[in-house]
Design a protein around this nucleic acid. Structure first.
Lengths: 193, 193
DNA sequence: TCGATTAGTCAACATGTGTCGTTTAAGCGA
DNA sequence: TCGCTTAAACGACACATGTTGACTAATCGA
């Protein structure tokens, strides 16, 4: 299969549009390949020429969203003051709010492990790159950069999942601020013991 | 269905043992209800009397593990010094190392969204309880307790997923120490700008 | 422009899924 | 102990899955 063939590109575009359309209305697990093919006006066998299953398709369809989240993480000035949310982080939460239902479905209990793993993976890679290439805010040099990246990627996914699972309740700016404060808060020094 | 009926208890125990046995050897997605029923020496229709799908079954089978992780989080002294890993946290990573393959499968791209969500949910609830009931280390009072809990739950799941995906490479104690340092590190105060 | 290539269609297949009605037998209460 | 309740077995059903081989038609290269 040549992915550059215009016929293949058209088909993939139709499949992605169809699966996002269906995912906006129903649970992921209830999206059958048959219904998907019908909705995309594509033969059922053709779906398997491009994706092994619905999970892979929906994850690919969300790739733009994942890239947007990763880019926001890449653009955040890590040393911005604690009470001033960086623009990219705010935009990230606004983006999530704009597709809250979709994110809730993807990250919820009936969601896609593939999507969640992809999201964490992209974020981890992005942050690990920043941490090893550039430099981290002081105080973390004794922790491997990739573990630090995985920690933050998980934290961000965790907060997003928690936030969209509840509605999302509250303004995107508030959620972004809470996340930023957690990232930027100085723990109270503790006497060694 | 009476869950206390000894016949039902026996059947569920056999199903859980069977699914864990299969999950140790093959990818989750390739575990069919038919093969599972055969391996558990139970009729296929009987599976559906207890669980809607394999995902729900495997998540239930992992409930003890989830409880162990949540308990460890509940027992960690949050003010322990930065370079001294609390015992429960160290035991948590040792527990994960002991079932690394299983955790890797459950939290990986072909894993169970249900399990990951359950793990985060239990951890979030546990931590939120501590944060609202007791008190957090100073400096986080302006962040909602549940968001803080979701942040840490996600971070822990992220680090575990990253760690087991790679082998796990290194000693459990090292991973626990890295996580603890990330949780306990004081960010360098930044001049407001 | 024309021929070769190949994405997509279509029908068919073995297998798995989820559900149902019936039968068997284990467990429970009186 | 005996009879009622019900978990589990069993066979059957319509439907979804993943794959195959033959055919059609869009695309590409010369």
């Amino acid at each position: 299969m040549n992915p550059d063939d215009p016929r293949a590109q058209r088909t993939r575009a139709r499949l992605k549009a169809a699966v996002l359309d269906l995912a906006a209305r129903q649970e992921l697990a209830s999206i059958t390949v048959s219904a998907l093919a019908k909705h995309a006006e594509v033969n059922r066998a053709t779906v398997y020429l491009h994706y092994p299953d619905v999970d892979a398709l929906v994850t690919d369809a969300m790739e733009d969203a994942v890239a947007a989240v990763a880019r926001a993480a890449a653009l955040c000035p890590l040393d911005a003051p604690r009470d001033r949310v960086p623009g990219p982080l705010r935009e990230l939460f606004e983006h999530v709010a704009g597709a809250a239902t979709l994110y809730a479905r993807m990250l919820g209990p009936h969601g896609s492990a593939r999507f969640a793993a992809r999201m964490r993976e992209r974020l981890t890679a992005e942050l690990a790159g920043r941490f090893s290439g550039g430099r981290r805010p002081a105080g973390w040099d004794d922790v491997p950069a990739d573990v630090h990246a995985a920690y933050l990627a998980g934290a961000l996914v965790g907060v997003i999942a928690h936030w969209v699972a509840a509605g999302p309740a509250g303004e995107p700016g508030d959620a972004a601020l809470a996340f930023w404060r957690l990232f930027r808060t100085a723990s109270a020094p503790t006497p060694a013991g």
